[in-house]
């Protein structure tokens, strides 16, 4: 009689936090399942076929700026407003300058030149990070290039 009454604790009471400790695993599972059911029942979803947006190769664009290379809308002529004239040059030159830059970038430094430069740079930078004592090991040759000397100072035994 007493045992029967014990099992008849209400579900809401069993769900409370302080009751969780004493519960056995079976009733715990049962409660969890019920909770899940409630959540999934309350979950809303649209009864629609899954939308599959195909990747399109057409892009929409409503601006004329992209289509026609329009100039900047503020202009001044024959020195009426020097500020605007300066701005005009700056804004309208943008497109042309970019094109010129692209060409020059390629011709700026060749790979060989780069390699030659870094060859000497190794010593220069190495000197920067060397300690003061070791700095003497770096020696300038006739070209002014700095090269590390591999020979380290050794203790020389005095002669008798």
């Amino acid at each position: 009689m007493a045992a029967e009454r014990k099992t008849k604790l209400s579900k809401n009471l069993l769900r409370m936090k302080f009751m969780q400790r004493g519960l056995d695993s079976e009733t715990k599972k049962q409660l969890e399942e019920e909770e899940k059911k409630i959540i999934s029942e309350e979950h809303w979803y649209l009864d629609l076929p899954e939308l599959k947006e195909k990747e399109s190769f057409i892009i929409e664009e409503q601006s004329f700026l992209l289509c026609e290379d329009l100039l900047y809308g503020r202009m001044s002529f024959r020195g009426f407003n020097p500020e605007v004239e300066k701005l005009m040059l700056q804004m309208n030159a943008k497109n042309q300058v970019e094109e010129v830059e692209e060409e020059t970038v390629e011709l700026d430094v060749s790979d060989e030149e780069m390699a030659r430069r870094y060859e000497t740079l190794v010593g220069t930078i190495g000197k920067k990070f060397a300690k003061k004592r070791d700095r003497a090991n770096y020696e300038e040759d006739e070209n002014g290039d700095i090269k590390p000397i591999k020979t380290r100072k050794m203790f020389l035994k005095p002669q008798d």
């Binding site: 004329f64 026609e68 329009l70 100039l71 503020r74 001044s76 002529f77």
Partner: peptide
């Protein structure tokens, strides 16, 4: 407006030679 703002617009070049002027175009 688009015709006037085109990079090779003759109208604007000719207008610019007439008087000293300032002009603003809104799209």
């Amino acid at each position: 407006i688009r015709r006037l703002l085109a990079p090779d617009c003759e109208i604007l070049q000719e207008v610019g030679k007439l008087y000293p002027l300032e002009i603003v175009f809104g799209m």
